[in-house]
Design a protein around this nucleic acid. Structure first.
Length: 897
RNA sequence: GGGCGCAUAGCUCAGUCGGUUCAGAGCACCUGCCUUACAAGCAGGGGGUCGUAGGUUCGAAUCCUUCUGCGCCCA
């Protein structure tokens, strides 16, 4: 076989993915095996693959592939989220740019038709891209939150919650996005510190004479001077001595001269601004509360797109955008002498997560889910670890939120989404409806209406359906149930797949999504939606910024896959991704992954270049190789044990790094070097076959992490029958092994390293064979009685002889390795001065070490409190130290002065 | 204002139950090698008072408290 010295991933990856998919390996149907289920966090249908997706989906794929190799029925359900607000914004832009259409000119039906067109054409690209990464999803199950069945589930859940009294329509202060013209949930508002200006504005007292009206009055501080037209009072703290005399009096609003009262309210912070607060119930949540307490009117001066309306009573500003109006207010107030002071000010401004528009508090009639009852079981489930979080400390974040739940606003003023199944009587004015009919269909609603109104003559034309759609999260919270058709067929396959095994998601959507899925699980299924949640960190750049498209700091995911291969990228992401910790992404990590692929590839090339004969030429080679094979088997078992433990605790990066260092270090650097035949020499069949088997098992063990190259090598190692693919093998199991053997080989490795060091020190050529002796002792006899061990050392350290001796042979230099003393033949001049210094230094260290051990052992409380094994270990350490000290002392004594 | 978290080598981070010669990995750095699988490589090496000050313990990077410096979430 002729193989290139470098592994090239491009052709290999495409070929194997296609083969796996065609072979049906990703497909899952319920059977008698134990299920292992993951539902993908559905990416937005508008999404394109970015670093976060790659991390998240690599983890899911690793877990799914591992489960498959463990013989479980692995089922990974893919799909996309309709992402109402994000997608609607995209469709609106597309219509404007491509079709020269404005949303306002379309009917709801026309718009939705275009939206589906857009979705068919551009949506779901990301699912194709996930294949490049190697994601072994069951594509036949691909779901979408706007699929017909899914849509119906959302509607029936709405009706169900309404009937149970867990859903209501109410007038509340909500977050309004004036650009998207929709309400937002609290979680969709992002607060950022921004600089603005604080206007100090004087409101003149009403009973003052016109002449000095501007000089006396009350000064308030506001960031939003344009909202003074919506003011209904000025509030001061009742304890504030500065304003006692004004409480109960009236002031005039500048420019429009409307009279408003001065009231007292505890809420007012005497320290802030001037200690006097303008009350604008329509445009501030706190003011709204105060207004309610004092039964003040509400004056809403803004339109849905945040322009001043006629209710502001000041014609020059009507129709202007709020920010434009604010700008003009400065000149207007100044001109009339109302502006007392202007100061710079930093504050938290809330912006829409999607449109980045400054969010406007707005009083609005919306649908809310009552969270108190839904939250209780969901909180309990996490606290008592029925649903386990990895890492566990996300419990704290979760609890903090769950204990302060506020009702969830689930209506959105959009068209792209599940339309709210509530009907009103056309005879009642908009937003003042007294009758609400919630039903799964218009006909059902009509039936209700006829009964309630006792008017059998009502027709569908007398009803009007709510114009709003559901918040996207009010559909995706049903994901783990709905993708298995759990609402319509509660006893179907969902009984097999649910609860799912693990959810893998970023911690940033713990409230948006994770918490709500847990609530939905208990509410609609009486059961948790998943056994465990694996929280991934955020992928950040080297400056710790979250990677985002708007910052342009995210590497092109597809280019990374092109450059390093999916295996390389997966390695790079995983090697630095302990659960929950943010990762600072560096392309260098992918380079490591690519290099690892190349290493594997070259190990294959080496093995495939060997000529095989039935028996080795010499017996010494046979026992050396046999020892190497035995050692590899033992060490591999040890490694597998630790990997199983890592998987059980979702310590995936640990598992990967363990495998990496076992393969690169133990397998390539040590094992292959031990068994590698000399130039143009053959290898014996037994060793060869054992090596192929071992390499194959290593590929299965590594497969979940790096699926493509492992499949490729698996097939190149041996001829495989159809269906004998790496992806469907059984994961290797650890077996009992001899820990003493593993330890002895470690001792031998340390000796080889020490000998190489000596070589470096004396500039001895790597191929120049050396003669070495080991001082006779019970421990050295024990070590070298291991069959093949001396041969192994000779091969790796390039020795011509390794023999026992009683006395120091002439012309040698001695050194210590482990607790043994060795002599190596040296023809070069030895610098005895330096040698003495080194030995002395080592001796000093060993004596200090011994002293600390002895102090420990002399302590009775240590002997009595520490576990026996720990005490025993200390005794062994003492014995070893004593042995070493003795050898070092002898060495020092014999060194020429 | 309320809450959570972090601080370990030049950089990025592991370190599970408090106990091994346990202070580790990768990158970077230094020395020597184009050795017959791999220079995307091989062999070797230097480098950290585990942020600070206390405490608990026979024993602390690990548990508790203080301070300092960062980060995040909620309001």
């Amino acid at each position: 076989m002729d193989l290139a010295t470098r592994y090239s991933h491009a052709e290999v990856e495409a070929r194997w993915y296609e083969h796996w998919e065609r072979s049906g390996y990703f497909r899952s149907v319920p059977d008698e095996r134990e299920p292992f289920t993951i539902v993908i966090p559905p990416p937005n249908v508008t999404g394109v693959l970015h670093m976060g997706h790659m991390l998240n989906n690599s983890i899911q794929d690793i877990l799914i592939r591992k489960a498959r190799l463990d013989g479980k029925n692995a089922c990974w359900v893919p799909g996309t989220d309709h992402a109402s607000i994000a997608t609607e914004a995209k469709v609106v832009r597309w219509l404007r740019d491509e079709k020269k259409l404005r949303k306002a000119d379309l009917t709801r039906e026309q718009f939705l038709e275009y939206a589906y067109q857009w979705k068919e054409k551009y949506g779901g690209i990301i699912l194709q891209q996930l294949r490049r990464l190697g994601a072994s999803c069951d594509w036949t199950r691909t779901a979408f939150t706007m699929d017909k069945g899914y849509y119906e589930d959302c509607i029936s859940v709405f009706v169900d919650l309404y009937r149970k009294g867990k859903l209501y329509r109410g007038l509340r202060m909500v977050n309004w996005d004036p650009e998207a013209k929709t309400v937002l949930s609290n979680e969709e508002v992002i607060y950022q510190t921004e600089t603005s200006q604080l206007y100090h504005i004087k409101y003149p007292l009403v009973d003052q004479k016109a002449a000095d009206s501007v000089t006396s009055g009350i000064v308030i501080a506001t960031q939003r001077p344009e909202t003074i037209f919506a003011d209904v009072a000025i509030a001061v703290n009742p304890k504030d001595p500065r304003y006692q005399h004004l409480i109960g009096k009236s002031v005039r609003i500048p420019l429009i001269n409307r009279h408003i009262p001065v009231i007292a309210d505890e809420y007012v912070d005497m320290e802030f601004g001037t200690g006097a607060l303008k009350i604008t119930p329509a445009h501030d949540p706190n003011d709204y509360e105060i207004g309610q307490r004092h039964q003040l009117p509400i004056i809403d001066i803004l339109t849905d797109d945040a322009k001043l309306n006629e209710r502001c009573e000041y014609p020059p500003l009507i129709g202007l955008d709020r920010f434009e109006a604010r700008k003009r207010m400065r000149g207007l107030l100044e001109a009339e002498g109302y502006l007392v002071k202007l100061e710079d000010y930093t504050t938290n401004i809330g912006r829409s997560e999607r449109t980045h528009a400054v969010v406007e508090p707005k009083l609005s009639l919306q649908w809310f889910v009552r969270m108190s009852e839904l939250g209780a079981p969901a909180l309990k489930a996490v606290l008592n670890r029925e649903v386990r979080f990895y890492p566990e400390n996300f419990q704290n974040l979760y609890r903090n939120w769950m204990e302060n739940l506020r009702d969830w606003c689930i209506s959105r003023q959009l068209w792209w989404g599940q339309r709210i199944p509530a009907w009103y009587l056309r005879s009642e004015p908009l937003n003042e409806e007294t009758h609400i009919f919630v039903a799964t269909s218009a006909e059902e609603a009509l039936e209700q209406a006829r009964q309630v109104t006792e008017n059998p003559q009502l027709t569908l034309d007398d009803l009007r359906q709510d114009e709003d759609v559901l918040d996207t999260w009010a559909s995706s919270w049903l994901w783990p149930i709905s993708v298995f058709d759990g609402f319509r067929k509660p006893n179907g396959e969902i009984r097999y797949y649910y609860p799912t095994s693990v959810l893998v998601t970023g911690w940033d959507i713990i409230f948006f999504w994770v918490a709500r899925m847990i609530m939905a699980g208990y509410e609609f299924r009486g059961q948790k939606p998943f056994e465990a949640v694996y929280f991934t960190g955020m992928v950040r750049d080297k400056q710790r910024r979250k990677m985002s498209k708007s910052l342009g700091n995210s590497p092109d995911a597809l280019k990374l896959l092109d450059d390093y291969g999916a295996d390389g990228v997966r390695y790079g992401l995983m090697s630095s991704a302990a659960a929950g910790n943010d990762i600072l992404f560096d392309e260098k990590l992918c380079e490591n992954g690519r290099n690892f692929c190349n290493k594997l590839w070259n190990a294959l090339r080496l093995i495939k270049s060997w000529h095989v004969v039935e028996l080795p030429e010499e017996e010494s080679i046979q026992c050396r190789n046999a020892l190497a094979v035995e050692w590899m088997r033992a060490k591999f078992s040890q490694v597998l044990q630790s990997i199983e433990a890592d998987f059980a605790n979702f310590r995936l990066s640990e598992a990967l790094l363990t495998l990496y260092s076992f393969i690169w270090g133990d397998f390539c650097s040590w094992y292959l070097e031990i068994i590698k035949p000399g130039f143009e020499k053959p290898i014996d069949r037994a060793t060869y076959e054992a090596t192929l088997d071992l390499f194959g098992e290593l590929m299965v063990a590594l497969h979940p992490f790096m699926p493509f190259i492992t499949e490729e090598i698996w097939h190149r190692l041996r001829e495989r029958a159809p269906g004998q693919d790496c992806i469907v093998q059984r994961y290797p199991k650890p077996s009992a092994f001899d820990p003493i053997l593993v330890e002895q080989i470690e001792t031998a490795k340390a000796l080889v390293t020490r000998l190489r060091e000596v070589r470096n020190e004396y500039h001895i050529k790597p191929r120049e064979a050396l003669s070495v002796w080991v001082e006779d002792s019970p421990s050295s006899r024990a070590l070298f009685s291991r069959n093949g061990l001396a041969e192994l050392v000779c091969k790796l350290a390039v020795l011509s002889r390794l023999e026992r001796c009683d006395a120091e042979p002439a012309g040698t230099k001695s050194f210590l390795s482990g607790t043994e003393k060795y002599f190596v033949e040296i023809h070069q001049q030895v610098d005895y001065e330096a040698e003495r210094a080194k030995v002395k230094q080592e001796l000093e260290y060993q004596r200090g070490f011994l002293k600390s051990i002895e102090a420990k052992l002399a302590n009775e409380r240590f002997i009595s409190s520490a576990p026996a094994a720990v005490v025993e270990n200390e005794r062994k350490k003492r014995a070893d130290a004593l042995a070493r000290i003795q050898i070092l002392e002898e060495t020092l004594a014999k060194l020429p002065a």
